[in-house]
Amino acid sequence: MSAIRVKICGLNSPQDVAAAAAAGAAYVGFVFFPKSPRNISIEQATQLALEAPVGLCKVALTVNADDAMLDTLTDAVPLDMLQLHGSESPERVAEVKARYGLPVMKAIGVADAADLPQIDLYSQVADQLLIDAKPPKNADLPGGNGLAFDWRLLAGRKYWQRPWMLAGGLTPENVAEAVRMTGARQVDVSSGVEAAPGQKDAALIARFSAAAQSVAV
């Protein structure tokens, strides 16, 4: 049996980071996207990253960020991984990996079986994949919308070429079922552990992590 690795995304306070660490999370995510209620400044992220316990993987979520933005971000914040959550092409993913020397996680939106080939395509260039619910058309946010997709699409597909993480509409109540149905060994949550948009709840974080890690895989 191996433990499910949990990512708590959209953190914006030292209390959030402490709650994620106490719950046994493997990753914490900081959002750099002005339209998001979880958006934080580079200065905030720097402080949070410096205060994070050793061993907690610090992930920066960006959306179609250009080199100038990524230069500023990586120069200031001690990060362990970049998460590309926009419409970045495979070529752009490869460019970011080469330029910054950090592992890159590419988010891929899934609504139906027609979206699955993108997973194989990006697995050739990304270090990890985040499989999320595809946002509705004209949505302001590419993720963090609290939407799930049909997890049966991933059943029996435990092994792509790269490690992958399940996201989209996960909560303390459904994460165990999602893990059992998909075979995911990593899960990502943001809105599912919030009391209000952008406000994390330490009790929900603890419940989510416990529920995810209760599943034998």
Results as ranks from 00 to 15, higher is better:
2 S>Y: 14
2 S>L: 15
4 I>G: 01
7 K>I: 06
8 I>T: 01
10 G>T: 06
11 L>Y: 04
13 S>D: 00
13 S>T: 11
15 Q>A: 15
16 D>W: 10
19 A>D: 10
19 A>R: 01
21 A>G: 03
22 A>V: 05
24 G>S: 09
25 A>N: 05
26 A>E: 13
26 A>C: 03
27 Y>N: 09
28 V>Y: 04
29 G>S: 03
30 F>C: 12
30 F>A: 01
31 V>L: 02
32 F>G: 11
33 F>S: 03
34 P>K: 09
34 P>T: 10
35 K>L: 14
35 K>H: 15
39 N>G: 02
41 S>W: 03
42 I>L: 14
44 Q>W: 10
44 Q>Y: 14
44 Q>N: 13
47 Q>A: 13
48 L>A: 06
49 A>G: 04
52 A>E: 08
54 V>Y: 08
54 V>A: 15
54 V>R: 10
56 L>K: 00
56 L>D: 03
58 K>V: 14
58 K>H: 12
59 V>P: 03
62 T>S: 11
64 N>S: 01
65 A>F: 08
67 D>V: 12
67 D>C: 05
68 A>N: 13
69 M>Y: 13
70 L>W: 06
71 D>M: 10
73 L>F: 11
73 L>M: 12
74 T>F: 07
75 D>H: 10
79 L>K: 00
79 L>F: 15
79 L>A: 07
80 D>C: 00
80 D>M: 03
81 M>C: 08
81 M>W: 06
82 L>A: 07
85 H>R: 15
87 S>A: 14
91 E>F: 06
94 A>Y: 08
95 E>A: 11
97 K>F: 05
97 K>R: 15
98 A>I: 02
99 R>G: 14
99 R>E: 07
100 Y>E: 13
101 G>K: 09
103 P>D: 02
103 P>A: 06
104 V>M: 05
106 K>G: 00
108 I>C: 09
109 G>H: 01
112 D>W: 14
113 A>K: 05
113 A>I: 04
113 A>F: 05
113 A>L: 04
114 A>T: 13
118 Q>G: 00
121 L>G: 04
121 L>Q: 12
123 S>D: 02
125 V>Q: 03
126 A>H: 01
128 Q>A: 04
131 I>P: 07
132 D>W: 08
132 D>F: 14
133 A>E: 07
137 K>I: 13
138 N>F: 11
142 P>K: 02
142 P>H: 10
143 G>L: 09
143 G>T: 15
143 G>Q: 10
145 N>D: 11
147 L>V: 03
149 F>C: 00
149 F>M: 00
150 D>R: 02
150 D>W: 04
152 R>H: 10
155 A>H: 04
158 K>T: 08
158 K>N: 04
159 Y>I: 01
160 W>T: 12
162 R>N: 07
163 P>S: 14
163 P>W: 10
164 W>N: 06
164 W>E: 12
166 L>A: 09
169 G>H: 01
174 N>H: 00
177 E>F: 13
180 R>G: 04
181 M>Y: 05
182 T>E: 06
183 G>L: 10
183 G>R: 01
184 A>C: 15
187 V>G: 08
187 V>D: 12
189 V>C: 12
190 S>F: 10
192 G>D: 07
194 E>L: 12
195 A>W: 06
195 A>Y: 02
195 A>Q: 09
196 A>I: 14
196 A>S: 15
197 P>I: 14
201 D>E: 15
202 A>W: 04
203 A>M: 10
210 A>P: 00
211 A>N: 07
211 A>P: 08
212 A>T: 06
215 V>F: 03
217 V>L: 10
